[in-house]
Design a protein around this nucleic acid. Sequence first.
DNA 1: GTCTATATTGGGATAGAC
DNA 2: GTCTATCCCAATATAGAC
Lengths: 221, 221
Amino acid sequence: MLSMNPAQSKVEDTALSTKKRILNAAEHLFVEKGFAATSLRAISSLAEVNLSATHYHFGSKEGLFAAVIHRRVHPVNASRVKALETLTQGVNVLSVDEIITAFLSPFSGELPTALPRLMARVHGEPPALVRPLLQEEFGQVMNLFLKHLAIALPALGERELRWRFHFMIGAMMQLLNGGNPLEVEPDESTFSEGLEKLKLFVIAGFKAPTASMDLSREKKV
Amino acid sequence: MLSMNPAQSKVEDTALSTKKRILNAAEHLFVEKGFAATSLRAISSLAEVNLSATHYHFGSKEGLFAAVIHRRVHPVNASRVKALETLTQGVNVLSVDEIITAFLSPFSGELPTALPRLMARVHGEPPALVRPLLQEEFGQVMNLFLKHLAIALPALGERELRWRFHFMIGAMMQLLNGGNPLEVEPDESTFSEGLEKLKLFVIAGFKAPTASMDLSREKKV
DNA sequence: GTCTATATTGGGATAGAC
DNA sequence: GTCTATCCCAATATAGAC
């Protein structure tokens, strides 16, 4: 909520359309309390719109949830694909570092502060609620990144690569979730510090040697 | 739910005490649908106990939630501390590999199948609901592991170490969550495969070089 | 497209008999 | 310690006037 236009500082900003006010209020409450614990009444109250407007514009609570997510996720995919396309100008093989940087590009620089936490919150919802949504929203772009990573890391099998991608998502969510391990109030500088640390962590994870023996029996490093 | 005693195969197993039947049913539903979307009525119905019994034994829905978590988390902490103590017999400095293996020891071998997914589900609940609980349940043991890691990785600053520990938690949750990146039905062998991959990933992450320059400007590896 | 009013269902919690 | 019955409130969704 730093460096925000005063006209947008209130979630319910009455200068916006009814639809956008609902989306803003819903996003805020879904992030704070989760989907199930957020009522349409609380949303329409915060947005200062009539309760029925939510059904008119979005059909149902789940429809509203999907719309809230789509509004933020669409730019995320666009940013990732664009970053990747910029890198592939005239080059065939990208490095792991470049691919990861492209994948995390939506979180560099200025961003709507709701985005990271919304993504983390959606990721944390029960799979029964969000699995189809996540596949729909992220599936294609995820496969694109897996394709590039498979080329950058030819020694890794497809299974190993997919596991490591899976773990990267989890590590990333820890950053996006807004918490931090330093027990300080999170702010923009903490976030960008975490982003930098995250890159080092997951790049090393991707480049880890594959297991050919039980590591627990090895001598210490 | 593999290799389970038939007498325990039903969540509501009427041979158990009322309290345990409630805990089992609540655990099952919290894992599947999350805290907010699970009603006490659904729990008492599945457990085949009276609705009022939940309030008698646990005081409130949140009290029941805390009890469900505590029952599983207590052995997790015990397993981690014991694994660490076994390793420190006569030795002062543990390797990263040993420390991570100890941290993940609760998930090796046979385990109650509800444990991993319960932990992932709790992790995914809104922070407002679970942050105090997580601190209470995991705080001490987490600090113990941070202490050992600080010794094993003296080149890492405290901040960097805490960030990496943070990311490890996220990667681990991806495994515990029960999903897998292979688009196959999860089973025990998938889980132990993932556990092995997870170790390689996070150990490499902990051992990653610290950033002294912008990696994106480096040449490819 | 927005309002009021309401249908319908389900929620957590409690009182008090047994 | 377990039951029935109930309080009181909140939920999603819809009907229909304007």
